[in-house]
Design a protein around this nucleic acid. Structure first.
Lengths: 231, 231
DNA sequence: CGTAGGGTTGATGCATGCAAGAAGTCATCC
DNA sequence: GGATGACTTCTTGCATGCATCAACCCTACG
């Protein structure tokens, strides 16, 4: 009984429609199962009242997504991310979102543009109200709208994988969006929209990349010191 | 016995070290199991002399990689790619390789640079000898060297997924590299290297993207007409 | 006291059995 | 003749049992 990290029973919701994979992913992303925690198949099987087989399949998938690590014949553990990875992921994010903005700019008038305009308005409102939760949601929506608006399903697919990993790192590294950055961020969003409206792919890409880069630097500074150590 | 597509028994190599997943992936990528072909678990299990369980896991993984499609309670089939996907994948390729070149340019003198220089020399030789097989290998190596040289493991990871899907489309769409493009391609490689040597991230990225774009356009033209129809 | 070695434990890896469901077939009815 | 319906078959989805192997502990020895 020398367990390093104790897992408490998660709230037992019925396995119903939502897949086991989604539930496991959420538990890892939410930090309910913290980095380094063991995830024995039998434990999870009892937890979700299924057999080991579907649990195994879900864990394999999560390994594939980079959220857990399966050590053969030893066990499955929630992955411990490194600081280096977050830098790498932000570099990828910049590149992919830049591509998305560029593609969206070429598409002419699409419904996404209206969504983005409304997003800006709501973001300004959230900023005035210092509602950082609402603001974070809007930022999330802004970026996803542009990526989906790229009309490139493979890009959306890869971006989704990327964001899963980043969301995980966000939780783990306890990244905090500083209120001070909100206004700057909104201005950057606006300049992205401006370029999109002008159907300027190059400008849109540059604006988007600049924005992602700025916010990633801010995120790096916002990382608290208690984060896991690098390798 | 009304099977739409007949699978012939693949050469039975022992399951030894190399994993089942790799073997299955290769069989799909090589076109041994053509698009649309059913992949019943039991068939594959007997084929590789294992039980359904490991086959299932491998198939799930391949679905994740976008190579097969699992229709619940119906069966697993080799995915039928669309022309649209190949365009999307090339857009991603351009973006990721551009990022890689940019990152590599910032790294100063690294062993990758020598590999690239030698690659150019060998490419020219292959071009003179009209050795298109050797040439294709060298192109492959050139691009991978740059991506690996980016020193961004997450980029390498995503690029690998991307190239798997592209390799698949290459096979299926029977893309042919035209000899006429070899010389142009080498020049483009050279300009990428030039920018890398000057530690010019922006120039390297632009050169790389221009190159990928040019070769993807050539590939699109090189697609033969017998390819699968779009959705 | 430190270290090497064997045994125990607990986890995964795989095989197999059973049940559930989708697709196609065939017979029947209108 | 065409359409509808149940049935048959083939497939996956899941549960469970057994074998295997890594890590740990505890003992015995130098």
């Amino acid at each position: 009984m020398q367990e390093v990290i104790q897992l408490r029973k998660a709230a037992q919701t019925s396995v119903s429609q939502v897949s086991l994979l989604d539930k496991l992913r959420k538990l890892v992303l939410s930090g309910e199962y913290p980095p380094g925690a063991p995830l024995p198949e039998l434990f999870l099987a009892e937890e979700f009242d299924v057999s080991r087989t579907p649990v195994r399949e879900a864990l394999k998938q999560l390994e594939n997504e980079g959220l857990v690590e399966i050590r053969p014949k030893v066990g499955t553990f929630v992955r411990i991310p490194t600081r280096r990875e977050i830098v790498e992921l932000f570099q990828l994010k910049e590149s992919l979102e830049g591509l998305a903005a560029s593609l969206l700019a070429r598409r002419g008038p699409v419904p996404e543009m209206d969504i983005l305009k409304r997003n800006i308005e709501e973001s300004e409102r959230a900023e005035r109200n210092a509602d950082s939760v609402k603001y974070a949601e809007l930022v999330h929506e802004f970026h996803w709208t542009i990526v989906r608006g790229s009309d490139n399903s493979k890009l959306v697919e890869h971006y989704g994988r990327l964001m899963n990993q980043l969301a995980y790192h966000r939780i783990v590294l306890k990244t905090v969006e500083r209120p001070a950055r909100m206004r700057a961020s909104i201005r950057e969003h606006q300049s992205v929209i401006d370029a999109l409206l002008e159907k300027d792919p190059v400008g849109a890409e540059l604006a988007m990349r600049g924005h992602v880069n700025a916010s990633s630097l801010a995120a790096a500074r916002g990382t608290d010191a208690g984060a896991p150590t690098d390798a």
